[in-house]
């Protein structure tokens, strides 16, 4: 099992938790507009590659993003494609896409990803404030 990743969120990078302990916690949340998107997301993608070799019985991956730029959208797709691959290999994977109930763009972004990747995908709205 790869060692857990815990990255604190900042005003331009999201909080990331990738932890296999117990039922596992897999979450990317907050804002994503890093100066160098590849440098930020590469370790996450590498972690998922290692995890995919022997994943938990069930993987629930939560996206709870407030904002992401277009460069991040491409890397988020790469994350989702890793999850799709795990699903293709017979593992139990569920993506939960959380969006503020007043944010149509974030809801549509989730719909768009759900269209592209073939993996069980749940849209979850939440109330801000």
């Amino acid at each position: 099992m790869p060692q857990a990743i815990k990255i604190k969120g900042t005003d331009d990078t999201p909080m990331v938790i990738l932890n296999t302990e117990g039922e596992g916690t897999f979450e990317i949340s907050g804002r994503s507009l890093p100066e160098d998107v590849a440098a930020f997301y590469d370790p996450i993608l590498e972690w998922l590659d290692a995890y995919a070799e022997n994943p938990n019985k069930k993987t629930i991956f939560n996206f709870k993003l407030e904002y992401f730029n277009t460069a991040s959208s491409k890397l988020l797709l790469d994350v989702l494609l890793k999850l799709e691959e795990m699903h293709d290999n017979g593992h139990d994977v569920l993506v939960r896409w959380h969006y503020p109930d007043d944010d149509e763009d974030m809801e549509e972004a989730g719909e768009e990803y759900a269209d592209i990747v073939e993996v069980p995908f749940e849209q979850v709205s939440y109330t801000v404030g």
């Binding site: 100066e35 160098d36 998107v37 590849a38 277009t70 460069a71 959208s73 491409k74 890397l75 797709l77 768009e112 269209d115 592209i116």
Partner: peptide, 26 residues
């Protein structure tokens, strides 16, 4: 535009400077 964005996100590659060619479409 949605179609073009999806296509570019799937097929486009990140440039050396980290651009995804998606900004104007979005």
């Amino acid at each position: 535009l949605n179609k073009l964005y999806k296509q570019q996100m799937k097929e486009g590659r990140l440039s050396d400077r980290g651009g995804a060619g998606l900004g104007f479409i979005d």
